[in-house]
């Protein structure tokens, strides 16, 4: 299981680097040599870094659940006395750690390509990152559940995944209650301004934490509703 998860992640990493390069050079080309370029590049680096994490977060469960269903091992995972919630959380934990391992080289590659070296306070970035990613895992539960219920709609989610970027384009302010938006702004602030966790605006950090946990738990709750329906239809092992 680990092996295929690893392979999935590696191929993801390569794709992500390629997409980033295209984006970056595309942006440079479109902008010409404007003075604003420095800022844009920084935003791009932070945005891209976060985006790759969110993709990872959302896809882990969708991909995990559909793959296990396809392999016929999902029902075996369900037959654990710990319950599927805990089993899937363990899956998420493993994926989070392996993402972390691969993100460091990814970030280095991205910074090398863009020539923009950002300050990284590991603790602060890790903290904000965690709460920005958490809701993505929540959405992963919902997408995973929907994939079990409706089958073969993964490609639809890929398109939705791209759309997450839109949340980064929202202006700071009220919309920061959306954890993706709020997290992105806090992360940019920290990475660009060399700010530690305590130097970031506390209310924004708290709002991020609360909204993040809320979205995550709602995702899990919606998943359990879908799961009930799937078990009622008797299609847990079908794919």
């Amino acid at each position: 299981m680990m092996k295929s998860y690893m392979f999935n992640f590696l191929s993801g990493l390569i794709t992500v680097v390629i997409i980033f390069s295209i984006l970056l050079f595309g942006a440079r080309f479109a902008m010409g040599n404007s003075t604003n370029l420095g800022n844009t590049t920084e935003a791009l680096v932070v945005g891209f870094f976060l985006w790759s994490w969110l993709l990872g977060g959302m896809n882990t469960l969708t991909w995990g659940i559909t793959t296990e269903a396809e392999q016929g091992t999902l029902e075996q995972l369900y037959m654990s006395p710990y319950g599927f919630k805990l089993v899937s959380l363990a899956m998420l934990g493993i994926s989070f750690l392996s993402n972390l391992l691969f993100t460091i080289p990814l970030l280095l590659i991205i910074m090398l390509i863009s020539g923009k070296f950002l300050h990284i306070d590991v603790l602060t970035v890790g903290f904000i990152l965690f709460f920005t990613i958490l809701p993505a895992y929540g959405l992963g539960y919902v997408f995973g559940g929907l994939a079990l219920l409706y089958k073969r709609i993964q490609s639809l989610f890929q398109i939705l995944n791209m759309g997450v970027v839109a949340f980064f384009l929202l202006p700071p302010g009220v919309l920061d209650i959306i954890p993706f938006t709020g997290g992105y702004h806090l992360l940019s602030m920290s990475m660009r301004g060399n700010l530690g966790l305590l130097q970031l605006p506390l209310p924004k950090v708290i709002i991020l934490m609360v909204s993040s946990i809320l979205v995550f738990l709602s995702g899990m709750w919606i998943y359990s509703l879908i799961e009930r329906r799937v078990k009622f239809l008797g299609i847990l092992g079908h794919y």
């Binding site: 091992t73 075996q76 037959m79 654990s80 006395p81 092992g237």
Partner: peptide, 17 residues
């Protein structure tokens, strides 16, 4: 989920592993 401390199964087909 408590029942899985008592009961487990191999389902139809060759896809349980």
């Amino acid at each position: 989920y408590w029942l899985y401390d008592f009961i487990s199964g191999v389902l139809e087909g060759n896809r349980n592993i």
